[in-house]
Amino acid sequence: MRLASSKQASSVSKPGKTQRPRGRAGQSNLSGILLVLPALIVLGVLYIYPLISSIIMSFVSEQGIGLYNYRKAINLYWVDIFFTIGITLISLAIVFIISVAIAGYLRFNQWPFLNFVYRLPLFIPFLIAGHSMRVFLAPHGILNIILTRITGIPELPGLAFGWPGLVIAFVWKQFPQATLLILGAFQSVPDSCIEAALNLGSNKFRAIWQIVLPIASPTVLVAMVLTFVSTIGCLTIPLLIGPSKPVMLPVDMSFRITYFNDWGVANALGVISYLLVIGLSFYYLRYMVKKEEA
């Protein structure tokens, strides 16, 4: 009986089945849009609207519409623009070396301790990271106390409040995320590709550099772009640990607004930051397109 009834059920449901996909497709379109909607709203309200309004406002000043804000921004802050680019690129280079080194090491070796420890800065907010680096790198900070004990030199210059301290803080805060991404990409390179290289006489370093890194390059680039973007846009760390002159662009922006209520120049500086990021994105996209074509 049961068998018969189930057979009936299936034969009855057959025509329904053929109709169902259409209904489902319509439904999934709607539910898909509903699912994406919150993200779209957040993106629109918190990113696209401010972006457009800041671009517009950067052209508006007391002198009317024009490039006045840009002229002023470049006159006052051209050193800071180059300083920002320089610090970001130096940090990026060091982050690249450290994260590739750690990911390369962990690709070949199991070391759970390292695998755990390198991620710690991920969970530390920028404010805390900046502050702890300030304490660590100050003239009488923890680092110098240790170095004094070891070397016996009583007075050592502090690294905080200078560009090396800023770079150290950025690197320490940024490398875990890059490492996490790069390690994931390294691990997805098949063992056989690496073993083929070792087998032909390559050492591990060369296997990482010439085989693993190029194969993982799309993800490595993503990691570098993310690091670049979040370094160039970071306010807290330069504010806490950076030198008082020159400063990073976000500090200038905050300064223009806090002390002069000068939104025009602040927005002009913001747009300049965008352009720097867009410049990098352009290279990134060009590289990816080339790779796709190949």
């Binding site: 098949p190 056989s192 073993e195 083929a196 290289a197 194969i215």
Partner: peptide, 13 residues
């Protein structure tokens, strides 16, 4: 030694 792998393991780049 020289090994030939089941998956060929040619380097795609």
């Amino acid at each position: 030694t020289a090994m030939v792998f089941q998956s060929y393991a040619l380097w795609p780049h």
